[in-house]
């Protein structure tokens, strides 16, 4: 594959005695938009966490192209209701992986943060307390944080959960726009609605087995 960013080779993942993902192979290249689908408990989150290095593989490996960083948007993180944190603090924390041993942010880092907020149309939220935002605004802020971490590959775990129809469409439009700039995206989705399959590829998980399709193939076979 041209411009390959991420490759899973015979990746097996599990917890205790339970093997969740069995020998998964997957390639993600520049500009790909992969929707990961499967029933509840099928292992969608486990697969992406394995790809992110958050779960140690039982066997197999994850190969990330040199210099490629992943920006992650976790599923429904249970943020403390009274957490004192501004949008600025949250978005800037996306830079951590690139800071090395640097202790303080540089002026250019703040410029980058404002660029991301502008891109997502939330410039006016910079000094607002994160916990006081609406669900849609929170997701945009967390997307901005993920974009601070990467210019190559985004991994989103059910980002449209808890969003109303309008916010969900708006969020998907933003993702499609980002994808058109060359950013690769892996997004877990519920697969309840064909409207959620906005990418050009679908990865389906069933009984721990991972199968890849183009979206057109998947729609023809299963929808």
């Amino acid at each position: 594959m041209k411009n390959e960013l991420l490759k899973l080779e015979k990746l097996t993942l599990g917890f205790g005695d339970n093997v969740v993902i069995k020998s998964a192979d997957l390639k993600v290249g520049q500009g790909d938009f992969v929707c990961v689908v499967g029933a509840n408990g099928s292992g969608k989150s486990t697969l992406v966490k394995g790809a992110l290095g958050l779960i140690k593989p039982r066997s197999g490996k994850v190969v990330l192209r040199d210099g490629v960083r992943i920006g992650y948007l976790p599923q429904e993180t249970n943020f403390e209701m009274n957490f004192s944190a501004t949008v600025r603090e949250v978005v800037m924390s996306g830079l951590l992986g690139k800071m090395g041993r640097r202790i303080f942010y540089k002026p250019a880092d703040y410029e980058l943060m404002r660029e991301k907020l502008k891109l997502l149309g939330i410039m006016d939220l910079e000094s607002v307390v994160f916990s006081e935002l609406s669900g849609g605004q929170k997701q945009k802020v967390l997307l901005a944080r993920a974009l601070m971490a990467t210019a190559e590959l985004l991994v989103l775990d059910e980002p449209s959960n808890n969003l109303d129809y309008k916010s969900r469409r708006e969020f998907y439009e933003i993702l499609l726009g980002l994808n058109q700039t060359g950013l690769a995206i892996i997004m877990i989705t519920h697969d309840l609605d064909a409207e959620d399959l906005i990418g050009n590829k679908v990865v389906a998980i069933q009984d721990g087995r991972v199968k890849a399709f183009t979206t057109a193939e998947y729609m023809e076979k299963f929808k």
């Binding site: 958050l54 976790p74 202790i103």
Partner: peptide, 22 residues
């Protein structure tokens, strides 16, 4: 002072912090 940014990241969202190498 040295680890402030990392302390914030872990406190706010440990899973994300781990994903960027903390």
């Amino acid at each position: 002072i040295v680890l402030f940014k990392r302390i914030f990241a872990v406190t706010f969202d440990a899973e994300f912090a781990q994903s960027v190498g903390v």
